[in-house]
């Protein structure tokens, strides 16, 4: 390599701070700390495989029924019918589509659960603390805009290929809206209601759990909905690091220029997205908007309770 002359007009090409090389050090660090990383990886892998096995162990028709019931409870009769139609369509896409969809669902559920566990406290903190919000905002922007391939490689170096890396990559991309919307929801709570709670002697914890979180719930659920949607949009990219499921179908079809197979995978993802979106949106709506007072008074639970009450 020829020695480059430093020039004041173009200082950038001659100065090398070695950022790229130092990022390479991640690999060595990962190898050195294998003993720490492995057990954590195994724990999460077991969780994902557990959910996957459970979802695939249930016969498709039973699973379909369960999902329809959940949809009925969360979003009412119309959503339930839509979910039923969608799930039948998904099953008939191809003979193995159902199994692949369940695997994808397992990855999404794991990612969303972890997002919720990480995102909710961070979002509450951001909602309460202006400085923390100011600090975390550029981090969230980075997480959402940085191309997935950039962090795909370091994550694989750290953890290796497989489900766990897939979930981590998904979390990086899908977490920001949950944090943002939780913060927004907490900030959107009517300050006079919070003041009233203080005036009647509530402590900060009671204000959070009895006033702020319940009032922020619709916004937080909108964040969960966004997180689910973004998780689904990551499944194709995650399949590049050997995550199974519908995304892998699409990836393999791309490699073989197999339009039919790609369509099956793609449609499967879309249908799953529609189903999950309608169910979570239904949860975000309060029961009172649909004409009953408490959640247990509507849907299948309400029907069962009414039947039990009659006898």
């Amino acid at each position: 390599m020829a020695e480059t002359q430093f020039s004041i007009l173009d200082p950038f090409s001659s100065v090398d701070l070695g950022l790229a090389q130092s990022a390479d050090g991640v690999k060595q660090w990962a190898i050195d700390n294998r003993g720490v990383i492995q057990p954590i990886k195994n724990f999460f892998n077991d969780m994902i495989v557990g959910i996957d096995t459970a979802l695939n162990a249930v016969p498709p028709m039973i699973m379909l029924l369960i999902m329809v019931l959940i949809a009925w409870q969360a979003g009412g009769r119309r959503v339930a019918i839509l979910v039923a139609v969608c799930m039948f369509a998904l099953g008939f896409l191809s003979p193995n589509a159902w199994g692949l969809a369940m695997t994808t669902l397992a990855i999404v559920i794991s990612a969303v659960i972890l997002c919720f566990i990480i995102g909710l406290p961070l979002g509450i903190l951001a909602g309460k603390n202006d400085r923390f919000e100011a600090g975390i905002r550029p981090v969230l922007d980075t997480m959402q805009t940085i191309p997935a391939f950039v962090y795909l490689v370091p994550v694989v170096m750290l953890i290796g290929i497989g489900n766990v890396s897939g979930v981590i990559v998904t979390i990086i991309f899908a977490l920001p809206p949950l944090i943002r919307l939780t913060s927004l929801g907490i900030r959107g709570v009517n300050p006079s209601v919070v003041e009233a709670a203080r005036a009647f002697g509530a402590n900060p914890r009671q204000i959070l759990f009895k006033v702020e979180l319940p009032l922020a719930t619709p916004t937080i659920l909108a964040g969960v909905n966004q997180t689910i949607m973004l998780s689904l949009s990551m499944v194709v990219i995650a399949s590049m690091i050997s995550v199974k499921g519908l995304g892998n179908e699409v990836l393999r079809a791309m490699g073989r220029l197999d339009a039919g197979k790609a369509l099956v995978g793609g449609l499967g993802i879309v249908i799953l997205a529609v189903v999950l979106d309608r169910i979570t949106q239904g949860m975000g709506q309060s029961g009172r908007e649909r004409g009953h007072r408490h959640w247990w008074q509507g849907g299948p639970v309400g029907a069962v309770l009414r039947l039990a009450g009659k006898n």
Binding site: N190, S192, V193, E195, A196, A197, V211, P214, L215
Partner: peptide, 9 residues
Amino acid sequence: FQNMALMPH
């Protein structure tokens, strides 16, 4: 309170 400040939930 002037604006009642009841808890809507």
